[in-house]
Design a binder for these strands. Structure first.
Lengths: 129, 129
DNA sequence: CTGGACCTTCCAGTGCAGGGGAAGGTCAAG
DNA sequence: CTTGACCTTCCCCTGCACTGGAAGGTCCAG
């Protein structure tokens, strides 16, 4: 199977698949005599896994770690759990930061509800910020 | 005042101030005969404004818009309100997306709580993802 | 007059996940 | 035989806000 067909099957682009190979997410593809990449159908499952990892908020580098463990013949379950735990902690923190920012902006916005241009001195640029 | 002193007063670096000038956040600085940038003390207030804008989650490009309005002699209050509203909407959306991702990962993580390496087939890489 | 602290410009890189497009090779249909 | 679709490698670009470093100029104290 050539790269375009695999890309379509996996719901991505040829460009992205070459990028994945370069990043070590896909093993160097077999080549036809003329140099075209030639993929086994199972490769689609690997790309699906990459997509599932992305949907779980993992970076390509993290997904690659999992694939490397699998390619070594081991089960990556434990590492997957650690990554999910770490990602979860990050997300909680991001949510907390965004919530704090939301509160800050909400307050600023409330103060700015009744604009009074004259009370904004030029040297502080805008008194609502 | 030279760039290093201003940077220290404003709690940033000389490098960053040159970058701000390049990005149009600071007007081109006066120069001493030898070519050093020479700042009026009021410049610190402008940098403080940039910091307040960043604390409100605005991008430098957005902060620049506000400064440009102010530099045109107008009061940027209205534009500030619009920017805050837009930022607020973005943040709400980001929080919602992160919350959804958190739920997804929490579920994945729960399934992965009792790892069973043998049930992970190599072709799906990891059955928990 | 020398050393060190400061300044100048310019180029390049960071992280993330690709996308754009050039220049050229290959393959099957008409 | 040519056209068009597909493939190859290559390098640069995106957004965001800086940061690092090289090569050289300036200024002040000792």
């Amino acid at each position: 199977m050539r790269i375009g067909e695999l890309a379509e099957r996996a719901g991505t682009t040829a460009k992205t698949l070459r990028f994945y190979e370069e990043q070590g997410l896909l093993p160097p593809a077999e080549r036809t005599p003329s140099g075209y990449r030639d993929y086994a159908p199972e490769t689609a499952a690997r790309i699906d896994f990459v997509h599932r990892g992305q949907a779980a908020g993992l970076t390509l580098a993290q997904i690659r770690q999992i694939l490397d463990i699998r390619d070594d013949g081991a089960a990556p379950c434990e590492h997957v759990r650690d990554l999910l735990d770490a990602r979860l902690a990050e997300i909680e923190q991001q949510i907390a930061q965004l919530a704090a920012l939301r509160d800050t902006i909400t307050e600023l916005r409330r103060d700015a509800a009744q604009p009074d241009p004259d009370s904004c001195s030029a040297d502080q640029v805008c008194r609502y910020l």
